Computed example of a mutant assay.
Amino acid sequence: MDLLRREGFDNLTMRMVATAAGVGTATAYTYFSSKDHLVAEVMWRHLRQTEPPSYTEDQNTAARAITALRRITFLLGDQPEMAKAVTSALLGTDPDVAHLRFRIGLEIRRWIDDALGADSDPDTVEALELLYSGALLRAGMGYASYTETADLIQKTAILLLRSTDRP
Rank of each mutant, 00 (worst) to 15 (best):
V23F: 06
A98V: 07
A85G: 06
G8H: 01
G117N: 07
L116M: 08
L4N: 10
R6S: 14
S88K: 12
R71G: 01
S54A: 10
G140Q: 00
M141R: 15
R64A: 02
A65Q: 11
D114T: 15
L152E: 13
T67E: 08
Y143S: 09
L152K: 12
D123L: 05
L152Q: 13
L3A: 10
K84E: 07
L3E: 02
T93D: 13
S54I: 10
T124Q: 03
M141V: 10
K84P: 00
A26I: 04
P53I: 10
D78G: 08
T156A: 15
K155W: 09
A68C: 03
K155V: 07
R64D: 00
P167I: 10
D114A: 12
V86M: 05
S34C: 05
L116Y: 02
L47R: 05
T13C: 05
A98L: 00
A144C: 11
Y146S: 09
A62R: 02
A28S: 11
L75I: 10
D114F: 05
M14V: 10
D2G: 15
I112Q: 01
R109D: 02
G92S: 15
I158P: 01
K84R: 14
L76K: 04
L75E: 12
R6A: 14
R48T: 08
E81R: 12
P95K: 09
A139Y: 00
L3T: 07
D123G: 06
A28R: 02
L152C: 03
D58Q: 10
L159K: 13
M82K: 03
L47V: 14
A139F: 00
D2E: 15
Q154P: 00
L161D: 10
R5H: 12
H37Y: 03
M1H: 13
D94G: 02
L69M: 13
V23H: 11
Q59C: 06
F32L: 04
L130M: 12
P52V: 05
T27W: 02
G140S: 03
M43P: 01
G77K: 13
S163D: 13
L128F: 02
T13K: 05
V17Y: 05
P95C: 01
I66S: 05
M43E: 09
A144S: 13
T61F: 04
S120K: 07
L76C: 11
T19Q: 15
T87P: 00
L131N: 03
R6Y: 08
S145V: 00
R5P: 00
H99L: 06
E51H: 10
I158G: 03
T13Q: 10
L131R: 06
F9H: 14
V97R: 07
D10E: 15
D96W: 05
T50D: 11
V23Q: 12
L100A: 04
P53S: 05
A85V: 04
L128E: 06
Q79E: 15
Q49I: 00
I153L: 09
A127W: 04
S33W: 03
S120V: 03
A21G: 08
A21I: 08
T87C: 08
N60R: 11
A157R: 07
T25Q: 09
T50Q: 14
L106A: 12
Y55H: 13
